[in-house]
Design a protein around this nucleic acid. Structure first.
Length: 360
DNA sequence: AATGATACTCGGC
DNA sequence: TTACGGCCGAGTATCATT
């Protein structure tokens, strides 16, 4: 979806038409503290982008022409579900990749006609038609704009979609896909962020194709076995073309910003309780029990730290872990001198609840 | 020494 | 001049067990 959160806010507020829409995560520390989640294209045109401090964005947006709106995740998730339903009505192999992104394998088999034999691989004509029709359905049923990339591999399709934004469609042949990827800037590849791009530049690559000339041993040395091998393959034009499968979530966390920096254990534990209630609700919905609990601390210098403990037996959403939490907070404070700015809790190492739980 | 579990950091989105 | 969220999984270091 294009600028998803901002597009939805734009759409449900008639007043917003033509304005800069900035969807914000307010931290509550002070009136404007927090960061930009998503911004529409009018805002991008004046240099506002995701992750930017709200105060910074305000300097670039004339008040009369802009709206700063707090995120409403629940609403976005609801619309996301509607989009998901539209997509699954038309395709069999679908993986929802995030709240606003779907990966589809289009073999030429739509859900209504599963008996039809698959189109030959590389039948991009058929896929292009299916993409146009999907865009139209999302536009007509929900009034929303999206962009679709069609290519032989998932990576190529993702990048084609990004390139075609907004409200775009880009269809690539195998040769076009290879050319686009090898000539692409490093940070445009999903999975390569600023850190990885910077490190690759220091090793002498500026485009994806340049990675081919880097020594695989150094790649593994700098990025580790898995990422190093992935980069090496990427540089040589080899990348996974399959869709993969939907994977289960294996952690649930909630983190929040404290009104004021502190190292008072009571303040920290009070904030933790609030976050924990939310996280536990989620555990209950998802019918998960956990074996590991972690406390996340972000200190004044924005560095993050964690303390965690695993239990021998899984705990349900209603288990009492006050003692463990207090001990983890205590242990952190004993090791770290500074103030805590943000704190969070994370449950992981899940086991499904329900079904057989009684053997031991 | 090999294998598995746990604790923790990094960094992508 | 500064300003700064909330997730999650991947990856690695370290510890425990065999």
């Amino acid at each position: 979806m294009d600028y998803f959160f901002a597009q939805l806010e734009e759409k449900r507020r008639p007043m917003a038409s033509g304005k800069i829409i900035v969807v914000c995560v307010y931290s509550g520390r002070s009136a404007d503290s927090g960061v930009v989640s998503t911004v529409n294209y009018a805002g991008r045109a004046v240099g506002i982008h995701s992750g930017m401090p709200i105060a910074f964005a305000k300097k670039r947006a004339p008040p009369a022409d802009s709206m700063f709106i707090p995120v409403d995740h629940e609403y976005y998730a609801q619309v996301s579900g509607q989009i998901d339903a539209i997509i699954r009505k038309r395709f069999r192999k679908v993986v929802q990749a995030s709240i606003d992104e779907w990966n589809i394998e289009d073999e030429g088999n739509s859900a209504e006609e599963p008996a039809k034999s698959p189109a030959p691989a590389g039948d991009s004509g058929r896929a292009a038609e299916d993409a146009i029709s999907l865009k139209k359905a999302i536009r007509e049923e929900l009034g929303l704009a999206c962009s679709i990339g069609v290519a032989p591999s998932l990576l190529g399709a993702k990048m084609a979609s990004s390139k075609s934004k907004p409200d775009g469609l880009l269809v690539l042949s195998r040769a076009e896909e290879a050319k686009m990827i090898s000539g692409s800037d490093l940070e445009k590849v999903p999975g390569i962020g600023p850190k990885t791009a910077q490190a690759l530049k220091e090793m002498g690559a500026s485009k994806v194709g340049d990675i081919e000339r880097l020594d695989p041993i150094s790649l593994v040395d700098v990025f580790g076995r898995k990422t190093g091998a992935w980069l090496h393959d990427l540089g040589r034009g080899r990348f996974d073309s399959s869709l993969g499968s939907e994977k289960e979530q294996d952690e649930i966390s909630r983190i929040g910003t404290l009104k004021e920096k502190t190292r008072d254990p009571y303040m920290l534990l009070a904030k933790l309780d609030e976050l924990e209630r939310d996280a536990r609700e989620r555990l209950m919905q998802m019918k998960k029990s956990y074996r590991t609990v972690s406390i996340i601390f972000v200190t004044g210098d924005m560095k993050s730290h964690t303390k965690s403990e695993s239990f021998r037996n899984p705990k349900g959403y209603d288990a009492d872990i006050r003692k463990e939490k207090a001990a983890l907070v205590q242990a952190f404070l004993a090791e770290n001198p500074g103030d805590v700015r943000r704190i969070g809790i994370r449950f992981g190492n899940f086991m499904d609840l329900g079904g057989q739980t009684t053997l031991f």
